[in-house]
Design a protein around this nucleic acid. Structure first.
Length: 543
DNA sequence: GAAGTCACG
DNA sequence: ACGTACGTGACTTCA
């Protein structure tokens, strides 16, 4: 199909909509596009459904090369050697972004037709590349069906208790004003506490709180929480600064930002999930990022408490995979000790500590469990003695011993790590259970640091990426069930190992069953997958 | 727009 | 000798 601006020019009016409807709802017409999810959302607002196969060139490109940005221009330059206008070239970006309706129609139509032509040419080439890389099944069975699931989640949105946030905001503002005054008093000089540069100069030049203050790459004094904590007993200003930072973060990133993102038509916030950003296959989320809503501190919890059901007929249901990455590692490495611990549904960090410290499980105290936990996480990240020593505060030598001991107790895991790296060196890529690939161009780098990074990626990507594969499959299957059972409950958020629902109260039993079955049964591993479900009046109390 | 910092899994 | 744990996004300051 060719398309020229003179004979292919439609406006959205009463004639256009039936025409679009015929095409988009036709089951035998394949829909090829870039960022199809955005189109689906617009079509939905025109009461047009989308049927038939999808082929999103943005996502296709991302599966083939997850480490580069998947803008249409980059893809087009790479495959066709053609430079094209991007949406941001026309409507701008950031604060002053325009709508297509603000732009001259002629410009928009030329842009749209050029894009359509390029996208169609790209489909053929990308399809061939997907085939060559054995990625077609992942593309057609997981990534394409997921588009519509994400579109529904974004359109559904999530309700926010703005009154609570407003109260919280004034409470936090008062604290900030008080702390700022304290800090300035301690310092004896007026300065901008929010400026790391100025803060560093006050703490380390004027107040001389350290003999050898750490510097950042650019030569500035480092004032991160990690650095400041080292000096918290030398002067009360440190704790004030740390509190100031925590409160300022929560206030500006969440308490003040979230209400501004509420859509006036729906009264809810509507995130955008991005399917072609991460190198491992995870989703990401923007405007707002609902994947980093606070939970670890008391102050943070109050933000999460503001995520509420859409009305009194509903509750929030949260379902999260228990230790999914460690279970994947156990399964992929086939380590008998770790598999057995998961089959018995033991506390995995206690079980690990019991092996490492050679003590019965009831003799494992909190400190031992916590250091075993740090090692377990370290293993997933592609552990280094330095990294572990930093994390748990022991010497590098001790960290090295801990790691050696761990690998003695779990020899299959050590073997699996080595194999992951060997395979990556052989094939130049690493892959997940469903065949998602990440090419590791630096795996043979002569620079030891860069090579070590690639080796850690060879270990971590199959684990993190397989977890992403699994939850994506679960989401597709859950959405199918919600539709099939004509349910009012809606899936609203995904946070890597967790799914959140606006649950219609009367559907609780059915919804729990569906979620449990589809999440735990998404993919068969050598260990069981376990999902914990909670229900409550807010996202916080659903945990 | 880069750098620094910090929120999450 | 050198700098280091995996993956993200948002906010603020400053050049």
């Amino acid at each position: 199909m060719t398309c020229s601006t003179d004979n292919f020019y439609y406006r959205i009016n009463s004639n256009t909509i039936p025409f679009l409807k015929t095409i988009f709802e036709h089951k035998d017409i394949i829909k090829v596009g870039y960022d199809i999810k955005s189109s689906i959302k617009i079509l939905k607002s025109l009461e047009i459904e989308i049927n038939g196969d999808l082929f999103d060139v943005e996502i296709a490109n991302h599966l083939i090369n997850p480490d580069t940005r998947s803008s249409l221009n980059i893809i087009s330059e790479h495959y066709l050697n053609i430079s094209i206008q991007e949406q941001s070239d026309i409507v701008g970006k950031g604060k002053n972004i325009l709508s297509f309706f603000d732009i001259d129609e002629k410009i928009v139509s030329i842009y749209a037709c050029n894009n359509a032509e390029v996208i169609l040419k790209l489909q053929e080439l990308l399809n061939a590349d997907l085939l060559n890389n054995n990625l077609l099944e992942l593309f057609n069975q997981v990534e394409m069906p997921l588009i519509e699931v994400l579109a529904s989640m974004e359109l559904e949105g999530i309700a926010i208790n703005t009154d609570r946030l407003l109260e919280f905001s004034s409470e936090l503002n008062k604290k900030l004003i008080f702390l700022e005054r304290e800090i300035i008093n301690h310092a004896g000089v007026q300065f901008n506490v929010t400026s790391p540069k100025q803060l560093g100069e006050v703490l380390f030049e004027k107040m001389n709180l350290s003999e050898k203050p750490k510097k950042t790459k650019s030569g500035q004094y480092a004032t991160s929480e990690e650095e400041l904590t080292k000096y918290k007993d030398t002067h009360p200003i440190i704790n004030d600064v740390l509190s100031f930072r925590t409160i300022k973060k929560i206030l500006s990133t969440y308490v003040e930002a979230l209400p501004a993102l509420i859509n006036p038509d729906t009264g809810r916030i509507h995130t955008t999930f991005n399917q072609s950003v991460t190198s491992t296959g995870r989703l990401s989320s923007t405007k707002p990022n609902i994947q980093n809503i606070p939970i670890r501190t008391d102050l943070g919890m109050k933000v999460r408490e503001a995520f509420v059901p859409k009305n009194s007929d509903y509750l929030i249901l949260a379902a999260d995979y228990s230790q999914i990455e460690l279970r994947i590692m156990a399964s992929l490495s086939k380590d008998p000790a770790m598999i057995s611990a998961f089959k018995k549904n033991e506390d995995i960090h206690v079980a690990t500590a019991s092996k490492v410290y050679k003590l019965p499980k009831d003799k494992i105290d909190k400190t031992m469990r916590s250091s075993a936990k740090a090692v377990n996480f370290g293993i997933i990240y592609g552990i280094s003695a330095f990294g572990l020593s930093q994390n748990i505060g022991v010497s590098r030598k001790d960290a090295k011993k801990i790691i050696e001991n761990y690998f003695n107790e779990f020899p299959n895991i050590k073997e699996y790590m080595n194999l992951s790296i060997e395979n990556a060196k052989k094939t130049k890529y690493t892959q997940t259970l469903l065949g998602r690939k990440r090419f590791l161009r630096d795996i043979d780098s002569k620079n030891g640091m860069i090579r070590a990074m690639a080796e850690r990626n060879a270990i971590n990507t199959p684990i993190q990426g397989t977890a992403a594969d699994i939850i994506k499959v679960a989401m597709i299957n859950i959405e199918k069930q919600l539709i099939k059972n004509d349910m009012k409950s809606k899936m609203t958020m995904q946070v890597h190992d967790e799914l959140v629902f606006d649950m219609y109260k009367k559907e609780e039993r059915l919804l729990r069953n569906i979620i449990k079955q589809e999440m735990e049964g998404a993919i068969n591993l050598n260990v069981p997958l376990v999902v914990d479900i909670g229900v409550g009046e807010s996202w916080l109390s659903a945990h």
